[in-house]
């Protein structure tokens, strides 16, 4: 098992292979296909992340002291992005998630390259994941 820093490093490496941003998007779309899908009974309005222009559903639950995320989105790029975030943050302890700096987002250039509204979406996704982690820690 990799820790967060190692997972971030692996993603930075994967993205650095591509020079062209169209190729990076191709890769993001590819990653979206591996998204751990939210189960239908959790795909409800309560689980929609506010602040994204596309609709993104996110669910979190505790498994052996670690948070496990599942999600879905109606737009493919949003799906890829939430998949990347889940790749990094899933199966970690709540505290680790809450404190994660996620420097890799800047490193990859994701933030600059997503339109302002979508990068707000990215911020909203991260916030929501941390909020879930915090809530699960409280109830654990």
């Amino acid at each position: 098992m990799m820790n967060i820093a190692e997972k971030e490093e692996a993603l930075i490496d994967s993205f650095s292979i591509y020079d062209d941003w169209m190729d990076k998007y191709e890769y993001i779309i590819e990653l979206g296909k591996d998204l751990p899908l939210i189960s239908p009974d959790h795909k409800k309005d309560d689980n929609i992340i506010k602040g994204c222009q596309s609709t993104v559903w996110l669910h979190a639950e505790m498994k052996d002291g670690k948070v496990s995320f599942t999600a879905d989105a109606d737009a493919i790029i949003a799906k890829g992005i939430i998949a990347i975030l889940i790749d990094v943050l899933s199966d970690e302890e709540p505290d680790t998630i809450v404190n994660a700096k996620l420097e890799f987002i800047k490193e990859i250039g994701l933030q600059q390259h997503l339109s302002p509204t979508r990068s707000n979406g990215l911020v909203a996704m991260v916030k929501q994941m941390k909020r879930y982690a915090l809530a699960l820690k409280m109830t654990a």
């Binding site: 998007y25 222009q53 109606d74 737009a75 493919i76 790029i77 949003a78 997503l114 339109s115 979508r118």
Partner: peptide, 9 residues
């Protein structure tokens, strides 16, 4: 396709 995906690309 979703309009935001098209717009982004």
């Amino acid at each position: 396709t979703h309009p935001y995906d098209i717009g982004t690309l």
